[in-house]
């Protein structure tokens, strides 16, 4: 559905007399197959939106090529536009307009008739839990409703490929979970391919078959969330002791599970990353018990995409988002 090779975009910024070239996207290769839900992950300024704007023909690449839905973004932009739905993060409707009319007018710009656009729009309003809001001003809608209205706008011409730019930014947790359901349903109900940018790891985790990580304008990883998390060397095992005297022995027992790495000690807490810790846990508990080491608590944490991100970029995505 999407194939990009060496896709790049640079901007020239002027500072006094000096002209500097800033590479927003420095050569992106990516492939998305039909029916996939792919998350495009990266901190602010990593090149996510610039890449998305090139793939949706809103921005001309300065180098490289991309075909989207079988058409070249540079030379067949009109066909690309006809085949894709794009839901931008800045909204798509005028606050003073009427929701239904905005959807119908938008559909008609794709060449479908007024009657067809109306029927499609009303069907979408129903599917997206917007029934009864046809004649409402977007201004008078909740954030979640407005996002779903934006999605209805992007789907009115029934595209098979849908781009979503930060679809749940600014929504409360309930509205986000609700929107995830709707996004997931786009594939199950209409077989759509979905490409979405996000800087929420839980979103990528919950929605995507595959995650592309972009940093400093290049793709640094592309895999399923599970596989990416396995790249992080193991799960985090944390032992909380009752007695500081047992610390060295507990550290030795834990250290035996991952030869070559030192457990970290912090107060009464001993922790270590252990590959496939689930298999080792029973043995660890038995040996601690044998040694008479009492535990206040034991915790095992599977790696999160945030760990993945930290691993790949040396930065935490959460810090960036905050």
């Amino acid at each position: 559905m999407i194939h990009a090779r060496g896709l790049a975009r640079s901007f020239t910024t002027r500072k006094g007399r000096e002209r500097t070239e800033v590479k927003a996207v420095a050569g992106v290769d990516l492939d998305v197959e039909a029916g996939e839900i792919v998350g495009f992950l990266g901190p602010n300024g990593a090149g996510k939106t610039t890449t998305l704007r090139m793939l949706t023909t809103l921005l001309k690449p300065t180098a490289g090529t991309a075909t989207v839905a079988g058409f070249d973004v540079a030379t067949q932009s009109e066909q690309v536009r006809r085949s894709i739905g794009y839901v931008s993060q800045s909204g798509s409707t005028l606050p003073e307009a009427l929701a239904g009319e905005e959807v119908v007018d938008h559909g008609r710009l794709y060449g479908i008739s007024k009657a067809q656009a109306t029927a499609r729009g009303q069907e979408l309003f129903q599917q997206l839990d917007l029934d009864g809001l046809w004649t409402r001003n977007p201004r008078a809608m909740s954030g979640g409703q407005r996002r779903r209205l934006d999605i209805a706008m992007g789907l009115v011409h029934d595209p098979k490929l849908i781009f979503l730019d930060e679809p749940t930014t600014g929504l409360d947790p309930q509205a986000r979970a609700n929107l995830w359901q709707h996004i997931g349903a786009l594939r199950t109900d209409r077989g759509a391919t979905i490409f979405l940018t996000t800087h929420y790891l839980d979103e990528a985790d919950a929605l995507c078959d595959r995650v592309l990580v972009i940093d400093h304008g290049v793709i640094v990883a592309s895999d399923s969330p599970e596989a990416l998390k396995q790249q992080v060397s193991g799960d985090l095992v944390e032992l909380v002791l009752t007695d500081a005297a047992a610390l060295p022995r507990a550290a030795a027992a834990l250290g035996a599970l991952a030869p070559g790495s030192e457990p970290e000690v912090d107060g009464l807490v001993v922790s270590l990353r252990v590959p496939q810790a689930g298999r080792e846990l029973a043995g660890l508990l038995r040996s601690l018990d044998r040694d008479g080491i009492a535990l206040e608590a034991i915790e095992m944490r599977r790696p999160t995409l945030d760990d993945v991100f930290l691993n790949l970029t040396g930065r935490s995505l959460r810090e960036e988002a905050a």
């Binding site: 809103l58 006809r82 909204g91 938008h106 710009l109």
Partner: peptide, 17 residues
Amino acid sequence: VAEWRAGVIEAERVTPA
């Protein structure tokens, strides 16, 4: 300007119109 801020211009530019 108001329409651009609301994202309307971008949404229209992504149509084949």
